[in-house]
């Protein structure tokens, strides 16, 4: 009786513990540097038309273990080039890059063995089924068939694709493809996961499901490095981030710290007739600490939005529409670079 009870209890514990899929290879407690870049530079040689192009211009950053670290910036800021260098698929042309304690310049193969990578446009193998995509990818890492079978079963569950294992990749929706790509990137139980614009092109529902999966990974201690040009994504997912523009880092910090440092607490948005920006801005002078003119609105930075709105009304402004909101990373970006993230 006692033995039987023990068995039952062990079985129960197995069911509970076994259910929690362990996805990372590092422990949560360590707080070491996972990626460390000093003066990192990427210059592309001159092509058929045009001269040499510096995509990443001597940037410094540090990613700690078990954190979510973001690169925020518009298209062409150098985010993807940086990611490709961290992924050891594109050799740096200058500076030093240490990943997982190894030098990217000469240990690419060993580093890649411990990294998971989610490319911008999935790039799944269209000639294989969902299950085969995971299987073959595991083989690229030299995993055994038994290990692959176990791992892909867990990951299909994690990606909520178990019932799609035999489907062709073309038959999947955009959100499913993205989740499969993430599952694929986790095959080797990576210590570091790179995500290049993970939610670009997804509908809101698929986006939320994906974020949920990423939170789950973070909770389990996987270090995430991601790029995005969605500030809400960056605010939600990233513990720390760098803002990039024209290949340079223009600011570093946590989302909250960046907002506190660079912009006021609130923003008053005043809708205007297109083309009247300069004239309206002149009339609004003094309403807030600082005013930015966009095509269809004025952004008035202030710590007290309601007071600013009242002042604007006194001057007969805000007739079209007006709203007071908290400052976001978008405002930080606008302040730092003078342009919007998505143009």
């Amino acid at each position: 009786m006692g033995i039987l009870a023990q068995f039952v209890f062990c079985g129960y514990m197995l069911a509970v513990c076994g259910g929690a899929v362990r996805l990372s290879g590092v422990s949560v407690s360590s707080r070491t540097s996972v990626v460390s870049a000093r003066g990192l530079t990427k210059t592309y040689p001159p092509g058929k038309a045009g001269s040499a192009f510096t995509a990443v211009d001597a940037i410094d950053f540090e990613v700690h273990s078990a954190e979510a670290f973001g690169f925020l910036g518009p298209n062409g800021a150098g985010k993807s080039s940086t990611m490709r260098m961290i992924g050891c698929v594109s050799p740096p042309t200058g500076g030093t890059l240490q990943i997982l304690g190894m030098d990217a310049a000469d240990s690419g193969k060993r580093i890649r063995a411990r990294i998971g990578s989610v490319p911008q446009d999935d790039l799944l193998d269209p000639e294989l089924t969902v299950g085969e995509n995971l299987l073959i990818y595991g083989r690229y890492f030299g995993m055994s068939r038994i290990a692959i079978a176990e791992r892909s079963a867990e990951l299909l569950e994690f990606a909520r694709l178990t019932d799609k294992a035999d489907a062709r990749v073309q038959a999947l929706s955009g959100g499913m493809r993205r989740r499969l790509t993430i599952a694929r990137s986790l095959m080797n139980t990576p210590d570091l996961l790179l995500l290049d614009e993970p939610t670009t092109g997804l509908d809101p529902q698929a986006r939320h499901l994906l974020w949920e999966r990423l939170f789950e990974l973070k909770r389990q201690g996987v270090t995430l490095v991601l790029t995005t040009h969605y500030m809400d994504e960056a605010e939600r997912l990233c513990d720390r981030l760098v803002v990039m523009d024209h290949g340079r880092v223009v600011a570093t910090g946590s989302p909250r710290a960046l907002i506190d440092t660079h912009v006021t607490r609130e923003v008053l948005e005043l809708l205007i007739e297109p083309g009247t920006g300069a004239a309206v801005a002149a009339r609004a002078y003094g309403v807030a600490d600082r005013i930015e003119v966009l095509a269809d609105r004025l952004l008035c930075y202030t710590d007290d939005g309601e007071r600013a709105l009242a002042r604007a009304h006194e001057r007969g402004l805000g007739g079209l529409d007006a709203l007071v909101r908290r400052a976001t990373l978008e405002d930080v970006f606008l302040y730092l670079t003078g342009r919007s993230l998505i143009e």
Binding site: G87, V89, K109, R110, R112, A113, I115, S117, P119, D121, L123, L124, D125, P126, E127, Y137, Y140, F141, G142, R184, N188
Partner: peptide
Amino acid sequence: ERIYQPILATPMS
């Protein structure tokens, strides 16, 4: 298909 790109993100050269 550009499938060599993700393959090269693994230890394959």
